[in-house]
Amino acid sequence: MLCNLLDQKQDYGAAILSLVERYVNHFSRCYCNLSFHEKQDISQEVAIKLLCYGHKVRENCSRSWIYALVRNQCISFVRKQTTELSVLNRSTEANDDANIVGVIPPLAEGTDFGMINQIDCLQKVFDEIEIQETGKVDIAIYTQYAFGLSYVEISKRSKRTVDAVGRRISLLKKRLKNLVSEHC
C-alpha cells in the first residue's frame, strides 16, 4: 500500500489514504470530535509524514504504524489547539522518531509472561468490561490513557471530572485482577 503512494503506481496510494481517512474519522468520532477542515488538515499532515518517513518502512509498513501515525497526529493537533502539554508530550518531544511513529510495544511482547499472558484472556476481560453499564466509556478512558493523554485531557474529552478519570484508572488494575481470575 505504502509503496504505491511513494512511487505513484497502481492505485496511487488510494488504499493507504483510505485507511488514513478511516482512522482520522475514528479518532474524531470516538475521542476528539474534529471538524471537516480539521480532519482534512490532519489527513494532509499524515500524508506529508508518509511521504517524508515512508521510505524508512516501505517494505514492512504495518497497519499499526499508520494507525500510530494518525493517532499521534490527532493528539498533536488537539494539543496544539488547547496548548496543553502532558508529561508524555514533553517526554516524546525529545524523541522525534517516537513522536512520529508512536511507541507501541508489539502485541507478542505481552504474551510471554505474567498473569495476563493470553490475548484471548484480555479479549474476554475487556469484553466483559464493555458489556457493563459504563463499560464503553471506561474502555475509552483506558485507551486514551494508553495513548498517553493526561487525566486533564481525558477529562475534557470524556466529560468526566479529573478525579473521576483518575479513579477509573486506579481501579483498573484491581478490576483486571478480579476479572482475570474469573474469566481466564
Binding site: 482512522y23 507501541i104 510495544p105 505481552g110 498473569m115 499472558n117 475487556f126
Partner: peptide
Amino acid sequence: DTQLDAAAIRSYLIARDEVQA
C-alpha cells in the same frame, strides 16, 4: 511481571482500538 502486564494491557487496548477503527 506487573510492568509487563501493564505493557501487555497497553498494547492490547491500542490494538483493540485499531481493530475498532
